[in-house]
Computed example of a mutant assay.
Amino acid sequence: MARPRKYNVTVQGLFCSTDARTNKVYWRYKHPITGKFHGLGDDKEEAKAIAIEANGRFAEQQTNQLFKIKERVSENFGLSITVTTWLDRYIKIQEDRLKDGEIKLNTFKQKITPIELFRRECGLMELQSIGAKDIARLIENYKKKGQRRMAQVVRMVLIDVYKEAQHAGEVKPGYNPALATKQPNNKVQRERFNLEEWRTVFAAAETSQRYVQNSMLLAIVTGQRLGDIARMKFSDVWDDHLHIIQEKTGMKLAIPVALRCDELSMTLKEVISRCRDRIISPHILHIHHTTGLAKRGGPVSSSSITMAFSRARDRSGLKWTEGTPPTFHEQRSLSERLYRAQGVDTQKLLGHKNQDMTDKYNDDRGKGWVVLAV
């Protein structure tokens, strides 16, 4: 029976027919290889979903077969494997490195976007046919969008992709087109905080959940990164120290609870005491009011802290005309500058391996005045 004209079927391989006795429409799928029809019943949406899924699987099988053929040709005739074939192996190498503790989870996650970009743009090309011009084009796209930091990450990851390919013998020794590209300049546009601005934002956070102000106090008094602050627990405090294993570096840091930020007139012990309330929770920063996504007493995620801080900053009425508004992370720089003025060893406090990195946090990016001594 012919397909009714009133049904506009756009899914490849999906057909329908009307039963003259019941006037019901039934759906069938034609196997793209055998040509055999398979009945799918009278539910149109379900039939479409099945047909789309089947088409996707057949396409995936054909793609995998194509890659296998290309790889066998490469092995037999000495040609380079495709970018996609190597990226599949590269990801497996990175997963093994993550499992063995050679790289951190955040480092692994950082590689995913550049890898998928490279796969999408150059997946069917031979790995050794890629030139510096191809890599530069990918980097330039991010630069045009103003995403210079992302441009740097793409270049860094693709350099590593080719380093691993060299180690595996898939490209010639020294062949690394990403390394031949120019390192994108990434001048930081974000403004620093000064103490008065911080106090203004802190006051604006008064109407937010209590954890917002508490997170700001912890950021200044401990000088730690957002992720480490979000993971702090009351059980981390013993022997009069707050114990932190820094997520980024793995450094084990014990901060005395007697540590005092003179400008805030508060010790770490006082901040932690402020975080203790009638809510029973193991987390120093915890949810105070149950919402659809979070329960009272539960941990506060890094993203929630960031968003709540940004809302308070925007409510404060402050304007930053020289660059983008300071983020939660900028409190780490403010903390470093306040403590350095007190004579505290800020390199140890921030957990940096070298003083040069600490000095970058000490740069106020033109916020302060140079005072001439007379």
Rank of each mutant, 00 (worst) to 15 (best):
D42Q: 08
D42H: 02
D42W: 02
D42L: 03
D42Y: 02
D42S: 14
D43A: 14
D43C: 08
K44F: 11
E45M: 13
E45A: 15
E46C: 12
E46H: 15
A47M: 06
K48D: 08
A49Y: 08
A51S: 09
A51L: 00
A51C: 07
I52H: 05
E53Y: 04
E53W: 03
E53D: 13
A54T: 15
N55I: 00
N55F: 01
G56Y: 05
G56N: 13
R57L: 14
F58W: 07
F58S: 06
F58C: 02
F58Q: 05
F58L: 11
A59H: 10
A59F: 06
E60M: 13
E60T: 04
T63Q: 10
T63L: 13
N64W: 02
N64C: 01
Q65A: 15
L66C: 02
L66W: 04
F67K: 05
F67A: 03
F67M: 09
F67T: 05
K68F: 11
K68V: 09
K68M: 10
K68S: 06
K68N: 13
I69W: 04
I69K: 12
K70C: 01
K70W: 00
K70T: 03
E71K: 10
E71Q: 03
E71W: 10
R72I: 07
R72F: 05
V73S: 02
V73M: 15
V73I: 10
S74L: 06
S74W: 09
E75F: 09
E75I: 11
E75R: 11
E75W: 08
N76D: 09
N76H: 10
F77K: 09
F77Q: 12
F77P: 00
G78Y: 08
S80Q: 01
S80M: 01
S80Y: 08
S80N: 04
S80R: 03
I81Q: 01
I81F: 12
T82D: 00
V83W: 08
V83F: 08
V83G: 00
T84Y: 07
T85R: 08
W86C: 01
W86L: 02
W86P: 00
L87W: 00
L87R: 06
L87M: 14
D88C: 07
R89E: 11
Y90W: 04
I91P: 04
I91E: 15
I91W: 02
K92D: 12
K92I: 04
I93V: 15
Q94S: 08
Q94R: 13
E95M: 06
E95F: 07
E95Q: 15
E95K: 15
E95V: 06
D96W: 12
D96L: 13
D96S: 15
R97S: 10
R97C: 08
L98H: 04
L98P: 06
K99P: 03
D100C: 12
D100R: 11
G101E: 14
E102D: 15
E102C: 10
E102Y: 05
